[in-house]
Design a protein around this nucleic acid. Structure first.
Lengths: 187, 187
DNA sequence: CAACATCATGAACCATGACTCACTTTGATG
DNA sequence: CATCAAAGTGAGTCATGGTTCATGATGTTG
């Protein structure tokens, strides 16, 4: 069947520009930026934006999905390094560090995730990828005795969801030091 | 001088009703509830609401101020119990527990606090009260050796600000267990 | 390169929600 | 209980921002 013609070249290009602009604008001004703002930042008319994303909710969902992909990639890279000999704890901590940092940067995305119903356990491929990599990473750390045995992937998600947003690097670091003892076995 | 006549009785009554309704509505529907909704819930016309709070920001500020008063009272009560022989750690943990619980209940208030500029260290009397009581409480716990010596009041505020909102009791409890090791000296 | 479907444009539309105001009601005061 | 300032009312105004649609431009295919 598939009588879907391929997308026109300019359409592809514009979709990219819109997604990038939305990402940037939302990061900077929060999820309440106007669609007009996003369109302008993308160098595109509002109508074009609405052709690609029929609703603001759709656009936010797309931005969030892109973010989840990055998180999943990061988790898998961390796991690969751990398999490669790196200490699992270090990878876990590093991963959390990076996520918190990016959460502070794209704080609005998190807020958006709340706004939508994206809190619940999704079954999107990329969420599954991230969860699987994280689970294995935690298991490695627990075998090594560095991660508390009762820590789960859900715990990790909980911390990620409550990570401080919109704060200075200093405050973020302090938050990490406050939270890490709950995950690792070192006092 | 003071030629301010006392407030009329019905005005006092309505002010109370409005504040209570605002508290309730914001807790339930978030800080984006319409002023009309709040007025209706208070059994009052919009105009009356605007007589007491000329701007939505003013209303939110008033709701937040009321919340801060409750927190300050709680902190002072905890401190009093500690002075009365109760273990300081227990009081600290209990306080955090109650704040997190009420934050989950009135999640919107926290969001509102962000929305306004109320994040920074205010010098309102009640904020000072809360801070002073907390500081003394922490010091007691540290003398007893139960609270990590480097924990500050700011750390506490950071945790309160990042407490999970809008979540089940179970999740909140889990968050507490994850976070407590960063504060106490027990592993 | 003709012909058509896809795509882009942006002014206009419309729902929402904060806020106003001309008018009525009511509590206090002598 | 007469008087009046304070308080209450709620339909209407206005700004904002998401969404549509008639029209024009452009990539693609035979």
């Amino acid at each position: 069947m598939s009588l879907d013609r391929p997308m026109r070249a300019d359409a592809v290009r514009n979709r990219r520009k819109i997604l990038d602009a939305a990402q940037a604008q939302i990061s900077e001004h929060g999820p309440d930026v106007g669609m007009d703002e996003i369109a302008k930042a993308a160098g595109v008319a509002v109508g074009t934006l609405y052709r690609h994303f029929p609703t603001k909710t759709d656009l936010l969902a797309a931005v969030i999905a892109a973010y989840v992909v990055r998180v999943a990639d990061d988790a898998e890279a961390s796991l690969a390094r751990a398999h490669d000999g790196a200490a699992a704890v270090d990878e876990v901590v590093g991963f959390l560090d990076r996520v918190v940092e990016s959460a502070a940067h794209t704080h609005a995305v998190k807020a958006a995730a709340r706004g939508l119903g994206v809190g619940g356990h999704g079954d999107q491929p990329d969420e599954i990828r991230a969860g699987a990599a994280l689970a294995e990473l935690l298991a490695l750390g627990q075998q090594a005795g560095d991660i508390r045995p009762d820590v789960t992937v859900d715990d990790f998600y909980l911390l990620m969801a409550t990570a401080p947003t919109d704060l200075s690097a200093e405050v973020r670091r302090r938050w990490l030091t406050l939270v890490l003892p709950g995950i690792t076995t070192q006092r």
